[in-house]
C-alpha cells in the first residue's frame, strides 16, 4: 500500500511539474508574441546581453567539440569504409551525419551544460535572495523580464551555433581526409557536398530549435522554482542539466523517428 501511495504521489508530482513546464512555455510565448502589441516591449539590451552569453561566448567550446567529433568520425568512418574500398565517401558520411544528427545534438548538450545550468543557477539565486519576489511586487513580470530574453537568445543562437558546428565538423573530417587518408582536397570537398541535401540541414536546424526551447524552458523553470538557499540553487542547477539532457535525447529520438517515417 505504501509503495502504491508513493508511486501515486510521485506520478501526481511529476504531472504537476510537466503541467507547470508547459504553462511556463505558453506564458513565455504569450509575452514574446503578444506583449509587444500592448506596449510592453522586451528590453533589447537584456536580449543582447543574453545572446552574447549564450551564443558568442559558446563559440570556442562548440568549435573544439565539433572539430574533434569531425576528426573522430572521419577516422571511424575510414576504418569501416576502407574495407569496402570507398574511403572517399568519408566526406559524405561526415557532412550528412553532422548536419542531421551529431551537430544539433552534441551542440545542444554542450549548451545545456554551459548555458542551461547558468540560467538555472542565476534565476535560482535571484529566487532565494528575494529578487524574483521584488520584481513581482514592482508589478514587473518575471517571465517577461527574465525568461523571454533567455528564451529568445537561445532560440536564435543555438541554430546559429549548430550551423557553425556543422561546418567545423566537416573541416575536422577534411583534415583527416586530406592529410591522413590522402584524398585530394577538391575531391573531398566535392564528395562532402555531393550527398548533402537541403533537408539534411533543415531537419538538423529544426531539431536545434526544439532543443533550444527545451534548454531555455527547463533552465528557467528549475531556476524560478528553486527552494531553500544555496543548496537549493545547486540542486536546481544539476536538475536543469540532467533533465535537459534526457529531454534532448528523447526529443531527438522522436524527431528522428518522425523524419524517418515521414520520409523527410
Amino acid at each position: 500500500m505504501n509503495i502504491l501511495q508513493a508511486i501515486g504521489r510521485a506520478t501526481l508530482n511529476a504531472g504537476t511539474a510537466i503541467w507547470d513546464v508547459f504553462a511556463l512555455f505558453f506564458n513565455t510565448l504569450y509575452w514574446l508574441l503578444f506583449a509587444p502589441f500592448i506596449g510592453k516591449f522586451i528590453g533589447r539590451r537584456y536580449i543582447f546581453q543574453q545572446m552574447v552569453f549564450a551564443g558568442v561566448q559558446s563559440i570556442l567550446i562548440v568549435f573544439f567539440v565539433t572539430l574533434f567529433i569531425g576528426i573522430v568520425l572521419a577516422m571511424q568512418g575510414a576504418y569501416q569504409l576502407d574495407k569496402l574500398g570507398a574511403v572517399r565517401f568519408v566526406a559524405a558520411l561526415i557532412s550528412v551525419s553532422m548536419c542531421r544528427e551529431m551537430g544539433p545534438v552534441l551542440i545542444a548538450l554542450v549548451v545545456a551544460g554551459r548555458v542551461g545550468s547558468a540560467i538555472a543557477a542565476e534565476l535560482g539565486t535571484m529566487k532565494v535572495t528575494e529578487q524574483i519576489e521584488a520584481l513581482e511586487t514592482m508589478a514587473l513580470n518575471p517571465v517577461r523580464f527574465l525568461v523571454v530574453p533567455r528564451f529568445l537568445a537561445l532560440l536564435v543562437m543555438l541554430p546559429a551555433l549548430t550551423i557553425m558546428g556543422d561546418l567545423v565538423g566537416m573541416f575536422g573530417g577534411y583534415l583527416v581526409g586530406v592529410y591522413n587518408l590522402k584524398i585530394s582536397p577538391g575531391l573531398y570537398i566535392k564528395t562532402n557536398f555531393e550527398f548533402l541535401v537541403a533537408k539534411d540541414v533543415m531537419t538538423g536546424l529544426f531539431k536545434s530549435v526544439v532543443f533550444a526551447i527545451i534548454i531555455a524552458i527547463i533552465g528557467c523553470y528549475q531556476g524560478l522554482n528553486t527552494k531553500g538557499g544555496a543548496e537549493g540553487v545547486g540542486r536546481s542547477t544539476t536538475l536543469s542539466v540532467v533533465i535537459s539532457f534526457i529531454l534532448i535525447i528523447l526529443a531527438d529520438a522522436i524527431l528522428t523517428g518522425i523524419f524517418y517515417f515521414a520520409n523527410v
Partner: peptide, 14 residues
C-alpha cells in the same frame, strides 16, 4: 505601483 517594499535581504538586482 502604489506601494513599495523593502525586502529583508534588500533584494537588489545583482
Amino acid at each position: 505601483k502604489r506601494f513599495g517594499m523593502l525586502f529583508q535581504s534588500a533584494a537588489l538586482f545583482d
